[in-house]
Amino acid sequence: MSETIPTTQTAVDQPAKPRRPLRLTMVLVWLAVLGLLAILGWGLLNTTAARPEVGQPAPDFDVAFFDGFGWDGRTTANLQDMRGQVVVLNFWASWCVECRDETPVLESAWQKYADQGVVVLGVAYADVEPNSLAYMDDFGVSFPHAPDLGTDISQTYEITGVPETFIIDKEGVIRHVQIGAVNEAMLDQIIPELLAQ
């Protein structure tokens, strides 16, 4: 009985099964699944976008100043235009109680440091324009102010509320973030240090 019984050999000899053609519906299904995953991933990245912190470059933005509250003779500007100056970027609103304590401090800093290369820029967050103008008039402010149109700037800086202040050095890097009101001692310590750099 040396003869072997061919059993498995025949399976190998069987003609190869023709590959199923790629069906259009399956292609569409997979494309849709990948699309959904991409959108979900994009949304996840956006919602977890980190707010700019100290040591990071300050995100650029455009502003259209309130009438009579421009900077350097301009009615519009962006942060890049202020490169080479120390920028005190302050988010405020007329309905914000705490802002009322710091507005005179910011005006004082503007008067003190404007000619040394400092820009104090007030950004009115979610405020009604007539109220913003009335507020600025009440406090007699003279430093540049702009509305946060479309809340683009506050979203970019991921502010947690008002008042909130970002102090940006001459190179456009954030050097201090203040949640809540700034005070005179704080500004008098930070601004000269940044001007000296």
Binding site: A93, W95, A126, D127, V128, T151, G161
Partner: peptide
């Protein structure tokens, strides 16, 4: 409401929303 999340403006009690309603 621009300040508190997911609160319709007509029922929001904040000053910001009161200002918006006046506008």
């Amino acid at each position: 409401c621009p300040v508190c999340e997911s609160t319709p403006l007509d029922v929001c009690p904040t000053q910001a929303c009161a200002d918006w309603r006046e506008l």
